[in-house]
Protein backbone atom coordinates (compact mmCIF):
# COMPACT_ATOMS: atom_id res chain seq x y z
CA UNK A 1 0.00 0.00 0.00
CA UNK A 2 1.69 3.19 -1.18
CA UNK A 3 1.43 6.49 0.69
CA UNK A 4 0.32 9.47 -1.41
CA UNK A 5 0.19 11.96 1.46
CA UNK A 6 2.18 15.18 1.35
CA UNK A 7 2.34 18.12 3.74
CA UNK A 8 2.01 21.63 2.36
CA UNK A 9 2.81 24.46 4.79
CA UNK A 10 1.78 22.35 7.78
CA UNK A 11 -1.43 20.96 6.28
CA UNK A 12 -1.41 17.31 5.24
CA UNK A 13 -3.05 16.43 1.93
CA UNK A 14 -4.32 12.94 1.07
CA UNK A 15 -2.54 13.35 -2.24
CA UNK A 16 -0.66 16.18 -3.97
CA UNK A 17 -3.28 16.79 -6.69
CA UNK A 18 -4.82 20.28 -6.63
CA UNK A 19 -6.95 21.63 -9.51
CA UNK A 20 -5.52 25.02 -10.45
CA UNK A 21 -7.35 28.29 -10.08
CA UNK A 22 -9.49 29.30 -13.03
CA UNK A 23 -10.00 25.78 -14.28
CA UNK A 24 -12.23 24.52 -11.47
CA UNK A 25 -14.54 27.41 -10.57
CA UNK A 26 -15.72 26.89 -7.01
CA UNK A 27 -15.96 23.15 -7.53
CA UNK A 28 -19.65 22.88 -8.37
CA UNK A 29 -19.29 21.99 -12.06
CA UNK A 30 -17.02 19.08 -11.16
CA UNK A 31 -18.80 17.87 -8.05
CA UNK A 32 -21.73 16.91 -10.26
CA UNK A 33 -19.47 14.34 -11.88
CA UNK A 34 -17.23 13.02 -9.12
CA UNK A 35 -16.76 13.44 -5.39
CA UNK A 36 -14.23 16.27 -5.28
CA UNK A 37 -13.26 15.24 -1.75
CA UNK A 38 -10.87 12.76 -3.37
CA UNK A 39 -8.68 15.77 -4.28
CA UNK A 40 -5.73 16.88 -2.20
CA UNK A 41 -7.34 20.31 -2.28
CA UNK A 42 -8.31 22.76 -5.01
CA UNK A 43 -7.53 26.39 -5.73
CA UNK A 44 -10.70 28.36 -6.31
CA UNK A 45 -11.35 30.99 -8.97
CA UNK A 46 -9.10 34.03 -8.62
CA UNK A 47 -10.91 36.57 -6.45
CA UNK A 48 -10.56 40.34 -6.45
CA UNK A 49 -12.03 43.01 -4.18
CA UNK A 50 -14.74 44.07 -6.64
CA UNK A 51 -16.69 41.99 -9.19
CA UNK A 52 -14.97 41.78 -12.57
CA UNK A 53 -16.51 40.89 -15.95
CA UNK A 54 -13.10 40.19 -17.40
CA UNK A 55 -12.05 40.63 -21.00
CA UNK A 56 -14.23 40.71 -24.12
CA UNK A 57 -14.64 37.46 -26.08
CA UNK A 58 -13.11 35.55 -27.79
CA UNK A 59 -11.14 34.69 -24.66
CA UNK A 60 -9.98 31.22 -25.76
CA UNK A 61 -7.80 29.95 -28.60
CA UNK A 62 -6.51 26.55 -29.63
CA UNK A 63 -2.69 26.06 -29.67
CA UNK A 64 -0.33 23.22 -30.45
CA UNK A 65 -0.11 21.30 -27.19
CA UNK A 66 -2.59 23.43 -25.33
CA UNK A 67 -4.63 26.58 -25.30
CA UNK A 68 -4.55 30.33 -24.83
CA UNK A 69 -6.88 32.06 -22.42
CA UNK A 70 -7.50 35.72 -21.75
CA UNK A 71 -10.40 35.48 -19.33
CA UNK A 72 -9.10 38.46 -17.40
CA UNK A 73 -9.96 37.46 -13.84
CA UNK A 74 -13.73 37.33 -14.23
CA UNK A 75 -15.05 36.81 -10.70
CA UNK A 76 -17.96 37.97 -8.54
CA UNK A 77 -15.80 39.83 -6.02
CA UNK A 78 -14.70 38.79 -2.53
CA UNK A 79 -17.92 39.72 -0.74
CA UNK A 80 -20.02 37.57 -3.07
CA UNK A 81 -17.47 34.76 -2.76
CA UNK A 82 -17.80 34.92 1.04
CA UNK A 83 -21.59 35.27 1.04
CA UNK A 84 -22.48 32.77 -1.70
CA UNK A 85 -19.65 30.63 -3.01
CA UNK A 86 -17.94 29.59 0.21
CA UNK A 87 -21.14 28.44 2.00
CA UNK A 88 -22.07 26.38 -1.08
CA UNK A 89 -18.51 25.07 -1.29
CA UNK A 90 -18.47 23.96 2.35
CA UNK A 91 -21.48 21.73 1.65
CA UNK A 92 -19.62 19.76 -1.01
CA UNK A 93 -15.94 20.02 -0.03
CA UNK A 94 -14.79 19.07 3.44
CA UNK A 95 -11.04 19.72 3.19
CA UNK A 96 -9.05 22.95 3.41
CA UNK A 97 -9.40 24.82 0.13
CA UNK A 98 -6.81 27.11 -1.44
CA UNK A 99 -8.11 30.66 -1.80
CA UNK A 100 -6.71 32.30 -4.93
CA UNK A 101 -6.42 36.06 -4.59
CA UNK A 102 -5.66 38.71 -7.18
CA UNK A 103 -5.46 42.48 -7.15
CA UNK A 104 -4.49 45.68 -8.87
CA UNK A 105 -2.84 47.34 -5.89
CA UNK A 106 -1.10 46.24 -2.72
CA UNK A 107 -4.10 47.57 -0.81
CA UNK A 108 -6.46 45.39 -2.82
CA UNK A 109 -4.43 42.21 -2.19
CA UNK A 110 -4.37 43.08 1.51
CA UNK A 111 -8.10 43.73 1.74
CA UNK A 112 -9.10 40.55 -0.08
CA UNK A 113 -6.73 38.47 2.04
CA UNK A 114 -7.92 40.15 5.22
CA UNK A 115 -11.54 39.31 4.44
CA UNK A 116 -10.80 35.72 3.40
CA UNK A 117 -8.59 35.18 6.46
CA UNK A 118 -11.72 35.17 8.63
CA UNK A 119 -13.35 32.36 6.65
CA UNK A 120 -13.60 28.73 7.76
CA UNK A 121 -12.42 26.08 5.36
CA UNK A 122 -9.63 28.08 3.77
CA UNK A 123 -6.28 26.36 4.21
CA UNK A 124 -3.96 28.58 2.22
CA UNK A 125 -4.01 31.92 0.47
CA UNK A 126 -2.55 31.60 -3.01
CA UNK A 127 -1.67 35.14 -4.00
CA UNK A 128 -1.58 35.56 -7.76
CA UNK A 129 1.02 38.15 -8.74
CA UNK A 130 1.22 36.69 -12.22
CA UNK A 131 -2.00 37.03 -14.22
CA UNK A 132 -0.88 37.91 -17.78
CA UNK A 133 -4.35 38.97 -18.94
CA UNK A 134 -5.07 42.12 -16.97
CA UNK A 135 -3.49 45.50 -17.27
CA UNK A 136 -2.01 47.50 -14.43
CA UNK A 137 -2.18 44.62 -11.96
CA UNK A 138 -1.52 40.95 -11.53
CA UNK A 139 1.65 40.23 -13.41
CA UNK A 140 3.11 43.70 -12.90
CA UNK A 141 3.67 42.69 -9.25
CA UNK A 142 5.15 39.35 -10.20
CA UNK A 143 7.73 40.56 -12.68
CA UNK A 144 9.75 42.57 -10.18
CA UNK A 145 11.31 41.09 -7.01
CA UNK A 146 10.72 44.23 -4.95
CA UNK A 147 7.03 44.47 -5.90
CA UNK A 148 6.44 40.76 -5.28
CA UNK A 149 8.12 41.12 -1.89
CA UNK A 150 6.01 44.15 -1.05
CA UNK A 151 2.76 42.26 -1.76
CA UNK A 152 4.02 39.29 0.25
CA UNK A 153 4.92 41.40 3.30
CA UNK A 154 1.64 43.31 3.20
CA UNK A 155 -0.48 40.19 2.90
CA UNK A 156 1.44 38.30 5.58
CA UNK A 157 0.70 41.14 8.01
CA UNK A 158 -3.07 40.56 7.80
CA UNK A 159 -3.37 36.77 7.83
CA UNK A 160 -2.36 33.82 9.95
CA UNK A 161 -2.98 31.41 7.09
CA UNK A 162 -0.06 30.16 5.01
CA UNK A 163 0.62 32.48 2.08
CA UNK A 164 1.68 30.94 -1.23
CA UNK A 165 2.76 33.42 -3.90
CA UNK A 166 1.85 32.34 -7.45
CA UNK A 167 4.65 33.30 -9.81
CA UNK A 168 4.87 34.26 -13.45
CA UNK A 169 7.15 32.48 -15.94
CA UNK A 170 7.20 35.64 -18.06
CA UNK A 171 10.32 36.97 -16.32
CA UNK A 172 14.05 36.98 -16.84
CA UNK A 173 14.85 35.28 -13.56
CA UNK A 174 12.06 33.52 -11.69
CA UNK A 175 14.51 32.37 -9.01
CA UNK A 176 15.24 35.91 -7.83
CA UNK A 177 11.52 36.64 -7.53
CA UNK A 178 10.90 33.43 -5.59
CA UNK A 179 13.76 34.31 -3.24
CA UNK A 180 12.40 37.81 -2.72
CA UNK A 181 9.03 36.30 -1.75
CA UNK A 182 10.69 33.87 0.64
CA UNK A 183 12.70 36.68 2.24
CA UNK A 184 9.49 38.70 2.61
CA UNK A 185 7.87 35.89 4.57
CA UNK A 186 6.05 33.77 1.99
CA UNK A 187 5.20 30.30 3.25
CA UNK A 188 5.41 28.84 -0.24
CA UNK A 189 5.47 29.67 -3.93
CA UNK A 190 3.42 28.16 -6.77
CA UNK A 191 4.53 28.13 -10.38
CA UNK A 192 4.09 28.49 -13.24
CA UNK A 193 1.22 30.74 -14.23
CA UNK A 194 0.58 30.79 -17.98
CA UNK A 195 3.14 31.81 -20.60
CA UNK A 196 2.22 34.93 -22.53
CA UNK A 197 1.31 34.10 -26.12
CA UNK A 198 -0.88 35.00 -29.07
CA UNK A 199 -2.50 33.57 -32.21
CA UNK A 200 -3.46 35.31 -35.44
CA UNK A 201 -6.39 34.29 -37.65
CA UNK A 202 -5.15 33.84 -41.23
CA UNK A 203 -8.54 34.73 -42.71
CA UNK A 204 -9.11 37.96 -40.81
CA UNK A 205 -5.39 38.76 -40.30
CA UNK A 206 -6.27 39.79 -36.78
CA UNK A 207 -5.45 38.34 -33.34
CA UNK A 208 -7.79 35.49 -32.42
CA UNK A 209 -8.19 36.78 -28.87
CA UNK A 210 -10.08 40.03 -28.29
CA UNK A 211 -7.39 40.84 -25.72
CA UNK A 212 -4.71 40.29 -28.44
CA UNK A 213 -2.53 38.23 -26.09
CA UNK A 214 -3.34 35.45 -23.66
CA UNK A 215 -1.81 32.89 -21.36
CA UNK A 216 -0.57 29.61 -22.86
CA UNK A 217 -1.25 26.48 -20.84
CA UNK A 218 -1.49 22.77 -21.49
CA UNK A 219 1.01 19.94 -22.07
CA UNK A 220 3.19 22.19 -24.25
CA UNK A 221 4.32 24.22 -21.23
CA UNK A 222 5.11 21.19 -19.06
CA UNK A 223 8.89 21.11 -19.71
CA UNK A 224 9.15 24.84 -19.02
CA UNK A 225 7.29 24.34 -15.75
CA UNK A 226 9.45 21.37 -14.72
CA UNK A 227 12.60 23.41 -15.40
CA UNK A 228 11.38 26.38 -13.36
CA UNK A 229 10.21 24.21 -10.45
CA UNK A 230 13.60 22.47 -10.52
CA UNK A 231 15.45 25.80 -10.41
CA UNK A 232 13.26 27.53 -7.83
CA UNK A 233 12.97 24.59 -5.44
CA UNK A 234 16.76 24.37 -5.17
CA UNK A 235 17.07 28.08 -4.43
CA UNK A 236 14.43 28.40 -1.69
CA UNK A 237 13.67 26.42 1.44
CA UNK A 238 9.89 27.01 1.41
CA UNK A 239 7.67 24.50 -0.40
CA UNK A 240 7.04 24.85 -4.12
CA UNK A 241 3.68 23.98 -5.67
CA UNK A 242 4.37 22.88 -9.24
CA UNK A 243 2.01 23.37 -12.14
CA UNK A 244 1.98 23.84 -15.90
CA UNK A 245 0.68 21.25 -18.34
CA UNK A 246 0.29 18.43 -15.82
CA UNK A 247 -2.02 15.84 -17.36
CA UNK A 248 -1.12 12.41 -15.96
CA UNK A 249 0.02 10.71 -12.76
CA UNK A 250 3.46 10.39 -14.39
CA UNK A 251 3.53 14.18 -14.81
CA UNK A 252 2.72 14.61 -11.10
CA UNK A 253 5.65 12.40 -10.17
CA UNK A 254 7.98 14.19 -12.59
CA UNK A 255 6.96 17.55 -11.13
CA UNK A 256 7.66 16.24 -7.61
CA UNK A 257 11.04 14.85 -8.64
CA UNK A 258 11.77 18.38 -9.90
CA UNK A 259 11.02 19.69 -6.42
CA UNK A 260 7.28 20.24 -6.09
CA UNK A 261 5.66 19.45 -2.75
CA UNK A 262 2.19 19.51 -4.31
CA UNK A 263 1.04 19.71 -7.91
CA UNK A 264 -1.70 21.78 -9.50
CA UNK A 265 -3.58 20.59 -12.58
CA UNK A 266 -5.06 23.28 -14.82
CA UNK A 267 -5.99 23.06 -18.49
CA UNK A 268 -6.43 19.28 -18.33
CA UNK A 269 -9.62 19.79 -16.29
CA UNK A 270 -11.18 21.71 -19.15
CA UNK A 271 -10.54 19.07 -21.77
CA UNK A 272 -11.34 16.14 -19.51
CA UNK A 273 -13.58 16.99 -16.56
CA UNK A 274 -12.43 13.77 -14.89
CA UNK A 275 -8.70 14.54 -15.33
CA UNK A 276 -7.89 14.94 -11.63
CA UNK A 277 -9.99 11.93 -10.64
CA UNK A 278 -8.11 9.82 -13.18
CA UNK A 279 -4.71 11.12 -12.01
CA UNK A 280 -5.56 10.28 -8.39
CA UNK A 281 -6.82 6.85 -9.39
CA UNK A 282 -3.66 6.17 -11.41
CA UNK A 283 -1.15 7.50 -8.86
CA UNK A 284 -0.76 4.34 -6.68
CA UNK A 285 -0.04 2.03 -9.62
CA UNK A 286 2.36 4.51 -11.24
CA UNK A 287 4.14 4.87 -7.87
CA UNK A 288 4.46 1.08 -7.68
CA UNK A 289 5.81 0.97 -11.22
CA UNK A 290 8.60 3.36 -10.24
CA UNK A 291 9.18 1.78 -6.81
CA UNK A 292 7.89 4.77 -4.85
CA UNK A 293 6.50 3.84 -1.43
CA UNK A 294 5.93 7.31 -0.07
CA UNK A 295 5.35 10.24 -2.40
CA UNK A 296 6.75 12.78 0.07
CA UNK A 297 10.13 11.06 -0.19
CA UNK A 298 10.63 11.88 -3.87
CA UNK A 299 10.25 15.66 -3.58
CA UNK A 300 13.30 17.14 -5.27
CA UNK A 301 14.90 13.74 -5.85
CA UNK A 302 16.23 15.00 -9.18
CA UNK A 303 18.18 17.84 -7.57
CA UNK A 304 21.93 17.89 -8.11
CA UNK A 305 22.59 17.53 -4.40
CA UNK A 306 20.79 14.17 -4.31
Amino acid sequence: MVDTKVTLCGITLDNPVIPASGTFGFGQEFHRHYDINILGSFSFKGTTLHPRFGNPTPRIAECPGGMLNAVGLQNPGVDHVIAEELPALRKIFHKPVMANVSGFSVEEYVEVCRRLDQEDGIGWLEVNVSCPNVHGGGMSFGTCPEAAAEVTRAVKAVTTKPVIIKLSPNVTDIVSIAKACEDAGADGVSLINTLLGMRIDLKTRKPVLANTTGGYSGPGVFPVAVRMVYQVSQAVSIPVVGMGGVTTAEDVIEMMLAGATAVEVGAANLVNPYACAMIIEDLPQVMEKYSIDRLNEIIGAAHKAN
Binding site: G22, E29, G54, T57, R59, N69, Q74
Partner: peptide
Protein backbone atom coordinates in the same frame (compact mmCIF):
# COMPACT_ATOMS: atom_id res chain seq x y z
CA UNK B 1 -22.08 30.55 -30.21
CA UNK B 2 -18.72 31.50 -28.75
CA UNK B 3 -15.25 30.03 -28.58
CA UNK B 4 -15.25 27.79 -25.52
CA UNK B 5 -12.57 26.35 -23.27
CA UNK B 6 -14.44 23.62 -21.46
CA UNK B 7 -18.09 23.70 -22.56
CA UNK B 8 -19.41 22.91 -19.08
CA UNK B 9 -19.12 26.13 -17.13
CA UNK B 10 -15.70 25.88 -15.49
CA UNK B 11 -13.36 28.22 -17.34
CA UNK B 12 -15.35 31.43 -17.91
CA UNK B 13 -14.05 31.49 -21.48
CA UNK B 14 -17.40 32.25 -23.11
CA UNK B 15 -19.08 34.71 -20.74
CA UNK B 16 -21.41 37.38 -22.11
CA UNK B 17 -23.26 40.22 -20.46
CA UNK B 18 -27.05 40.01 -20.22
CA UNK B 19 -29.65 42.25 -18.62
CA UNK B 20 -29.75 39.71 -15.78
CA UNK B 21 -26.00 39.58 -15.21
CA UNK B 22 -23.09 37.65 -16.67
CA UNK B 23 -23.91 34.35 -18.32
CA UNK B 24 -21.71 31.55 -19.59
CA UNK B 25 -22.78 30.71 -23.15
CA UNK B 26 -21.83 27.07 -22.55
CA UNK B 27 -23.64 26.51 -19.28
Amino acid sequence: EERMGCGFGACMGCTCKTKYGNKRICK
